[in-house]
Design a binder for these strands. Structure first.
Lengths: 353, 353
DNA sequence: AAACGCAAGACAAACGTTTGCACAAAAAGA
DNA sequence: TCTTTTTGTGCAAACGTTTGTCTTGCGTTT
């Protein structure tokens, strides 16, 4: 049986080899790596030379074992990462996260599971196994097992989105979804639309709940009646959008405008509408959320709310790192701004009646 | 000062605690975890009970340190992961990779860099630091530093794509891009097109080179003249597609069909064409590669070659794990099949002259 | 009945760091 | 000149596993 050795040129070069060459103790080398001020500049230089001469690289596992930190953070995606990855939201948020992690020389661990139970197990292994120093949760659903575990264990984590409960115990990064949805509804109303459909994701998701409230609020202020049938809940996928349209357009008085919670759904909406020969925005205005990169490629180009996905990820990373280095920090809530990007899927209501 | 009692929160429960409770030696516990046949079933049961009673979870770092394997693999993306992540190719390939890794209980480690040098440094740290047991490269460019390093170090890695040189020294997963491009050109020719533009990515990329060769081959076989101006190279982004169209349509004899190397580029192509009032497929047929999820959302829906991105990732994982467990395995080349998915962006040439 | 083989565990030495503490030498104070 | 203090290093004990080797007890052979 052959075991694979690093280095090939025999043994791995360790801190001791460096110490020997530099004529100091291993501990000194360790302190040089940590740039400990107690070591004189001259010794540091000597040691550094030895290090580069030997091509020394510290062993992360040994280091982690000794000082109990891994310099890595873990990423937890919704149980069905499979499906989730279809949505451009995730790559983009990961991009934000890995940008900050890279700046701070942290690494990113991903561990996926097919089911919720698997995900939970994976998280426990990560945490107990000391693989990561903190965790970023990419979803927030009702009474989540993982979140409960992390809280109980007092393990550093941040959440992208808003927790349903314990809002002021959990550091989280979110848009002001209530206000955003309200403003967007206001906007549609200002275009003359009064029959506005709301196409949301699962009603378990806090983001859906928040936005629905904002939508209602706007209607109430403008004294527009709230009509139950205008509200539909589907998955954040194109199929969801297709399904939603079927339901909404089957109504005897179909909406003239749609507030769609996700661009991918909106794409589904658009394609279904085009099949049904309903033209956007002439017959129906569509306003959606996320402003993913392909939003301006659909026909018509999608009017969408840019929620700054990248920044959501970035801030989540920033907060988590802070939390790791100062565990007693009080929970924070970061609100990331949003902007409406007007393209061609919304227009003023033309009264054809 | 407060001393923690075992089992209480704050104190990690180790293999020794389990050993004590089960009345065996730590080594025995270790072997139970490894399911070593030298331990009797009855002892195993006893130990397992103790483990679950204490809520024991093995420490990965200690384990990695002792047996010199991390049970994690590293992912290396193109230097500008920022841009790359815009392309749905990457999420999808990652999905494939993480599926197999999850099956085999391996973790996925991502480390990014902005520049090529940074990426290289990150890889060296990963490898020398013992963070990963193997690496998957998500790109293959000319004379790559990272690849050279890994080869020299004889560190297990697989490549998605085809290496420019050392092809039979490197385990890689790829489509038969030569044949694919040839067949697709054949297809366009069969539709009556003779002026076929080739919109490729960087000419450093092996995938571009291969496909260009296939394209040429087809032309040659059909005795169609190869016209230099019909070949353009741009980035694998929508902007690339836009740029390409500007160049091609400015020709005095513009092509009637386009072979585009990436869907994202094709989206750029489509949108630019629509701005220019050139209708697809009536005025210009567009055939592209990758068949990303949104390919059927563009107008017109994109005819695209499905290269089975998921499978590329999955196989890369499979091969890498094999390689890790059997380092002497000869390099393999896996070819993943492809299929043309016909939608609405290609049609038979109508002669209007 | 002596010798042997074997199964099941125990022991202890790694693995490569970090870090509290001890300690020598040099600098400063008295 | 003799304590103190400061500064720079070394020593050695963790950190939680794995794994090669040694021990024990017991059932088989001759």
């Amino acid at each position: 049986m052959h075991t694979w050795r690093k280095g090939e040129e025999g043994m791995t070069v360790t801190i001791k080899d460096v110490a020997k060459l530099a004529n100091v103790a291993p501990s000194t080398v360790s302190r040089v790596i940590a740039n400990n001020p107690r070591i004189s500049e001259i010794t540091k230089r000597k040691v550094r030379e030895a290090m580069s001469e030997l091509g020394y690289h510290p062993n992360f596992n040994a280091r982690s074992l000794a000082n109990r930190q891994s310099h890595a953070i873990g990423l937890v995606m919704p149980a069905s990462a499979d499906k989730a990855f279809q949505n451009p939201f995730f790559p983009e948020v990961i991009r934000g996260i890995s940008t900050i992690l890279h700046e701070k020389e942290y690494a990113l661990y991903m561990s996926t599971g097919q089911t919720e139970a698997e995900t939970y197990e994976a998280v426990v292994r990560m945490v107990q196994g000391g693989r990561v120093d903190g965790i970023i949760l990419l979803y927030s659903s009702v009474d989540d097992q993982v979140m409960n575990y992390l809280m109980e264990k007092k393990f550093p984590f941040t959440l992208i989105g808003k927790p349903l409960k314990n809002e002021n115990l959990i550091t989280h990064i979110d848009n002001d979804n209530f206000r955003a949805a309200k403003e967007m509804t206001d906007y549609l109303l200002s275009l003359g639309h009064e029959k506005i459909g709301f196409v949301g994701g699962s009603s378990d998701l806090v983001v859906t709940i928040d936005r629905l409230l904002g939508y209602e609020k706007s209607l109430r202020i403008h004294q527009i009646p709230y009509r139950e049938p205008y509200i539909v809940h589907e998955e954040f996928l194109k199929e969801g959008g297709q399904e939603a349209i079927r339901k909404l357009m089957a109504l005897e008085e179909p909406p003239t405008a749609l507030l769609v919670m996700d661009d991918l759904m909106a794409f589904g909406v658009l394609s279904t509408l085009s099949e049904m020969q309903i033209s956007v925005p002439e017959d129906l205005s569509v306003l959606s959320f996320n402003n993913v990169m392909l939003a301006d490629f659909s026909t018509p180009a999608l009017t969408s709310v840019d929620i700054n996905i990248f920044q959501l990820g970035y801030e989540a990373g920033v907060c988590l790192l802070k939390l790791i280095h100062e565990p007693t920090l009080p929970p924070a809530r970061i609100t990331v701004p949003y902007q409406l990007v007007k393209r061609n899927s919304c227009m003023e209501l033309v009264h054809k009646r």
